[in-house]
């Protein structure tokens, strides 16, 4: 019962945010259109530029995941929903990324029409180049957005759960590690880990070429890892953010 209510709350709560986001995207489309009409402003065709909506949607998914934790967790606890239900309601909310992916395709298509880009199909730039079908394209994008949503959720939990000093310390250590990784990779003419790992997750290969099966597997695995970490951290957390003491 409470799980259903929690899921309903999550959907309704984010509806406003989603509305504002797509309103902003509409403005992004309308501005060049009006500029073109009023001032005969030439926009040109920018092939990579039309993937802008994908990046914006990715950031938005991360933000939704991030915001999903604190306020909603507190609200659920106040209403007698246990941590497990709050967590399950987040999992139940993940399919919203299908809507995000479809909306992103639609907005990209509209933008392409406005700026009269070279292509007018309902696909991303890379998909057009790589001859992907529409279904494949939406599936890939949905999985990628799910990763961003889960990552935002996990980071919100980490920030709440771990003392700020440890977060700063971890950030410094990771930065130093990445820099050392970059320097050593350059010396050995190898791809640094910080470039290799995201490339492996995103493309399913370390060479920026999309391998469909690897892509799906790596994304599903990433989602599972992020959700498992979130589960472990969220389930042992008190309302005041203190960890479970046994």
């Amino acid at each position: 019962m409470k799980l259903k209510s929690a899921l309903k709350y999550r959907c309704q709560k984010n509806l406003k945010l989603i509305g504002v986001f797509y309103l902003a995207l509409s403005v992004i489309i309308l501005v060049p259109f009006i500029a073109k009409k009023l001032f005969s402003y030439s926009i040109g065709t920018f092939e990579d530029g039309v993937d802008m909506f994908y990046y914006l949607t990715a950031v938005f998914s991360f933000a939704i995941g991030f915001l999903s934790f604190k306020e909603e967790q507190d609200f659920f606890v106040q209403n007698g929903a246990i941590r497990g239900q709050a967590y399950k309601s987040f999992i139940g909310y993940l399919p919203v990324t299908v809507v995000f992916a479809l909306a992103e395709r639609l907005f990209t298509f509209l933008l392409c029409k406005v700026i009269k880009a070279d292509y007018s199909h309902f696909l991303s730039t890379k998909a057009a180049i790589e001859n992907r079908t529409f279904i494949e394209d939406v599936l890939y994008e949905t999985l990628a957005l799910m990763c961003f949503l889960c990552l935002g959720y996990l980071i919100a939990i980490i920030i709440r759960r771990i003392k700020p000093i440890y977060i700063i310390l971890a950030t410094v250590l990771i930065s130093v590690g990445l820099y050392a990784d970059y320097l050593s990779s350059n010396t050995n003419r190898m791809l640094p880990i910080f470039a290799y790992v995201p490339s492996l997750i995103y493309f399913g290969s370390a060479f920026n070429e999309l391998v469909p099966l690897n892509f799906v597997v790596s994304h599903v695995l990433t989602i599972c890892i992020l959700l498992s970490l979130s589960y472990i951290l969220a389930l042992g957390m008190s309302v005041n953010g203190k960890e479970k003491q046994k």
Partner: peptide
Amino acid sequence: EENTKAQEKIFLMSETNLYP
């Protein structure tokens, strides 16, 4: 603890505000 059946029967009006 973490039991839906038990927690459904409880309402706590707390000092701290947990509403958005």
